[in-house]
Amino acid sequence: MNAEHARPVGRGAKVRAAVHAATLAELAEKGYATLTVDGVAQRAGVHKTTVYRRWKDRESLVVDALAGHVAADIPIPDTGTFETDLRALARALVRMMTAASARALLAAVFSDAARLSEVAEVRRQIFDDRLRRAEPVVTRAVSRGELPAGTDAAEVIRSLAAPVYLRLLMTVEPVDEAVADQAVRVTLAAARAGAFSPTGLSAPGPLVVHG
């Protein structure tokens, strides 16, 4: 289907969402070097003149498509205990990152488009935003006395997310709830032991002597 004769998808927010999705899909499939406004327009079902009215070139289009995902809403659990909060957060991360849209986003931010300084900055913003939004899970646990004082919330969330991203980006292994639950067990044990607190040690417990 020719891009100039694509069926319109609507105006305003609907057009922007369709073009953003098409841009990420094109990046994931073809890379930045061969991405064209014509290709994006055809995939989005809009005329290329519609794209050019909103974005002056492909660079601004790519940056805007990526930046549009920075503020994506992430539900933050508040179940009353750190363990169940952590499990809910890990499973939500797996569901989110295995969705087609998230896979396209990851492929895009780690594609050859990352050579653009603007894209590299958006990638940093995306991951910083994810950490910031999840930190209340840790700070609440500290206030309840479940974790040592001074526990670094960002480091806890990094520990939780690392196995998921490792499998998605490096080893290309399946990612499911079992992976999420294993990440929870490791992160939970480390956090309770004070691995993420300034001293690296939790408060001393009772001495156990084994005969």
Rank of each mutant, 00 (worst) to 15 (best):
M1W: 08
H5V: 06
H5M: 04
H5G: 01
H5Y: 06
R7E: 13
G10Q: 08
G12Y: 06
V19A: 00
T23R: 00
T23S: 01
E26M: 14
L27K: 00
G31F: 01
Y32V: 03
Y32R: 09
A33C: 03
T34Q: 12
L35H: 06
D38S: 13
D38T: 14
G39R: 02
G45N: 10
V46I: 13
K48I: 03
T50N: 06
R54Q: 10
W55D: 00
K56A: 15
K56S: 14
D64G: 04
A67Q: 10
V70Q: 01
A71W: 05
A71D: 13
A72D: 14
A72F: 12
P75Q: 14
P75I: 12
I76K: 00
P77G: 13
F82K: 01
T84Y: 12
T84S: 15
L86I: 11
L86A: 10
A88C: 14
L89M: 10
L89S: 07
R91Y: 08
A99F: 07
A100L: 14
A102M: 14
A108N: 00
F110K: 00
D112M: 02
D112N: 04
A113M: 06
A114Y: 10
V119N: 02
V119Y: 01
A120F: 06
E121W: 07
R124Y: 10
F127A: 10
E135P: 03
V137I: 15
V138L: 13
V138F: 07
R140E: 10
R140I: 05
V142P: 02
V142W: 08
S143H: 12
P148I: 04
P148T: 05
A149I: 13
G150F: 13
A154L: 11
A154M: 11
I157C: 02
R158A: 13
S159W: 02
S159F: 02
A162N: 09
P163T: 06
V164Q: 03
V172I: 09
P174R: 08
E177R: 10
V179W: 02
D181C: 10
V184I: 11
R185F: 09
V186S: 11
L188M: 05
A193K: 08
G194P: 02
P198H: 04
G200D: 04
P204I: 03
P206N: 08
V208K: 08
V209L: 15
